[in-house]
């Protein structure tokens, strides 16, 4: 991975000099993680590609500000997160695009009554899609910073330190954000598994 880091920095050095090939290599390397992160932050796959596109445009335009001492992925996700925040603020000003609009109709889901929880594991208890939907909903309901921290954790090789840099928080605050996010999601899923009820936020 250290080699990849060096390569990122080396590529960015070339990008600062206007090297388009180097830029394309970086885009190809990171387009998928960025689109994934944005899509999960915004819960909008259609918008995710546009925001990811803007992210890379910003990288190109701001390449002269990149410091080789900083890890490229940290810088990249910082830009992506800022653009997500802008989009979230824009949507919050337009109620019609509210992120809080429910995606599914929970009332249609039958309440689960599990006869013998002790003898079963989650894969047996829940249909996969349903589980994914619940986890997705629990993540969506997290405060933005907790959501970002949790999602960045899923990105390969992004350390707590780097997540802190991206979010602009100290290491201890970052760990606290991640802990609270995990506890919230876990407790909601746990209650759902035990009772079949999906607790509110």
């Amino acid at each position: 991975m250290a080699e990849a880091l060096d390569t990122d920095a080396a590529l960015m050095t070339r990008v600062r000099g206007g090297d388009r090939d180097a830029f394309e290599q970086l885009v190809h390397r990171y387009q998928q993680p960025v689109i994934r992160f944005v899509a999960r932050m915004l819960r909008d796959e259609a918008e995710a590609e546009d925001i990811a596109q803007h992210t890379f445009v910003q990288v190109w335009k701001s390449a002269h500000r990149y410091q080789v001492s900083a890890r490229f992925a940290t810088w990249l996700f910082t830009i992506a997160r800022n653009l997500c925040l802008n989009e979230i603020r824009r949507r919050s000003r337009h109620a019609a695009d509210s992120l809080d609009a429910p995606i599914g109709d929970d009332e249609d889901l039958p309440a689960r009554q599990l006869a013998d929880v002790a003898s079963l594991m989650p894969s047996d208890l829940l249909a996969r899609d349903e589980l994914v939907q619940k986890v997705d909903e629990a993540i969506r309901d997290l405060p933005e910073a907790q959501r970002a921290a949790l999602l960045l954790c899923r990105e390969e090789d992004v350390s707590y330190d780097e997540i802190g840099n991206i979010l602009g928080t100290s290491l201890s605050a970052t760990k606290s954000l991640i802990f609270r996010a995990r506890e919230t999601v876990k407790s909601r899923v746990k209650r759902y598994l035990c009772t079949g009820e999906w607790p509110g936020r």
Binding site: Q32, R40, W60, V135, K186, V189
Partner: peptide, 28 residues
């Protein structure tokens, strides 16, 4: 607790992961 963690892990794994369109680079 273990079941919840396992369930969340599987749920996270199954979250939608959109792929970049083939003309992504050209759009950039």
């Amino acid at each position: 607790e273990m079941e919840a963690v396992l369930a969340v892990s599987r749920g996270l794994e199954g979250l939608p992961a959109p792929t970049a369109s083939s003309n992504f680079m050209s759009r950039v």
